[in-house]
């Protein structure tokens, strides 16, 4: 009987389904500290390569640019565990709230 009353109440309540992809990105509330696409503070990075060694899914490779060594993140392999941020001695790596990373092109899934 209680489930019948609950069902009647539910008929009047707003729907719980979020029409996410068609209703727009604003429907979802992404909390602070969400682990989305990562960002690198280039000036803080010292090129120590610890992040490359610690990455569990080998999603980081180290390249050399004009300022020295720096990591490149491959989002197609990344599992967003956050270990690179943990391991970084200078806190150069941070995570943004950007979660819509799927793409047809692998080139767009690199964070340089």
């Amino acid at each position: 009987m209680s489930i019948f009353l609950e069902a009647c109440r539910s008929l009047l309540k707003p729907k719980a389904t979020l029409r996410y992809p068609l209703g727009g990105k604003d429907l979802l509330q992404i909390p602070d500290g969400y682990r989305g696409k990562m960002a690198l503070k280039r000036e803080a990075c010292i090129g120590c390569t610890i992040c490359e060694k610690d990455c569990p899914s080998s999603a980081i490779t180290i390249i050399t640019d004009q300022k020295g060594k720096r990591p490149v993140f491959y989002l197609d392999r990344c599992m967003f565990c956050g270990q690179c941020k943990e391991s970084c001695p200078t806190k150069a790596i941070s995570f943004t709230k950007d979660f819509e990373n799927a793409s047809y092109d692998r080139k767009t899934m690199e964070v340089r």
């Binding site: 909390p31 500290g33 682990r35 956050g82 943990e86």
Partner: peptide, 23 residues
């Protein structure tokens, strides 16, 4: 949702770290 606020993800939380917790 609370888990997401608390640990950063809904299911695979990566919350525990060797020697403590992450956040």
């Amino acid at each position: 949702d609370l888990m997401e606020e608390f640990a950063g993800n809904r299911i695979t939380t990566s919350y525990n770290a060797i020697g403590g917790v992450k956040r």
